[in-house]
Amino acid sequence: MSDAEQGASTRRGRDETAEERADRMWTELIQEIRVAQMGVQILFGFLLTVVFTPMYATLSDTDQTIYIVTVVLGACATGALIGPVSLHRLVSGRRIKPQAVRWASRLTMLGLLLLLATTSASLLLILRVATHDDFVPYLVAGVVCWYLLCWFGLPLWTRYRHTTR
């Protein structure tokens, strides 16, 4: 095998132009956003109904504050995860797809962080109301650690471990 053949067979990555790469990355990002959008929209929808239930009036001031913060976080997460769609629509055809992909990726990461906060706050509120036990913050902290491991720790470890230098 010649050096050129060996180099071609061991080379990693795709042979694509910057525009082709941006198109591929955009398609992948939109698929990822669909999953997160579905989750945040369902959670946000349920959160919006809580205030209209008779039980809401019986919540302590602390629990009502947690609820309000959770709803605001859910609204922010929804905005960040829908933002890339609006971004794409407004800049489409302007020949700036690589820049749009970068900004959409940033919005998506922000949306995931806000979804993490929304989900954690929702869990805190639900467990506080359901159990009234002192262990709830520790349980929620454990779940947050699990989310951090699944959503960020493992992907970052994989990126570090398997990215060529």
Rank of each mutant, 00 (worst) to 15 (best):
129 V>Q: 09
165 R>Q: 15
104 A>P: 02
10 T>V: 15
100 A>K: 07
16 E>Y: 01
52 F>Q: 10
17 T>F: 05
19 E>I: 08
8 A>M: 10
100 A>I: 02
101 V>E: 09
43 L>W: 07
156 L>S: 06
143 V>K: 03
36 A>K: 03
73 L>F: 05
110 L>C: 03
120 S>M: 06
17 T>R: 09
81 L>N: 06
15 D>M: 10
81 L>D: 03
103 W>C: 07
127 L>I: 01
72 V>M: 05
112 L>V: 13
23 D>Y: 09
77 A>S: 09
76 C>I: 15
30 I>P: 02
91 V>M: 13
118 T>Q: 02
129 V>A: 08
59 L>V: 04
108 T>I: 00
38 M>W: 08
150 C>P: 00
128 R>N: 11
113 L>R: 04
38 M>P: 01
21 R>T: 15
67 Y>C: 07
92 S>L: 13
14 R>I: 12
80 A>Q: 08
16 E>Q: 13
135 F>C: 03
100 A>P: 02
116 L>F: 04
8 A>P: 01
93 G>Y: 12
106 R>S: 03
141 A>N: 01
124 L>E: 05
93 G>W: 10
8 A>V: 08
73 L>E: 00
122 S>K: 00
29 L>D: 06
146 W>M: 15
25 M>R: 12
36 A>F: 10
115 L>S: 14
86 S>T: 14
162 H>D: 07
105 S>M: 04
63 D>V: 07
14 R>V: 11
10 T>C: 08
121 A>D: 03
116 L>P: 00
149 L>S: 08
114 L>Y: 00
121 A>N: 04
110 L>I: 10
127 L>A: 06
73 L>P: 00
147 Y>W: 15
15 D>A: 12
6 Q>G: 00
157 W>V: 09
141 A>K: 02
10 T>F: 11
84 P>K: 01
107 L>R: 00
154 L>Q: 05
46 F>C: 04
67 Y>T: 06
123 L>A: 08
57 A>N: 11
15 D>W: 09
87 L>H: 14
45 G>P: 12
91 V>L: 14
63 D>C: 06
16 E>D: 11
4 A>Y: 04
45 G>M: 11
138 Y>N: 02
110 L>H: 00
69 V>T: 05
3 D>W: 13
8 A>F: 10
19 E>G: 10
79 G>I: 08
150 C>M: 13
93 G>L: 02
132 H>K: 10
149 L>P: 05
139 L>M: 14
48 L>E: 03
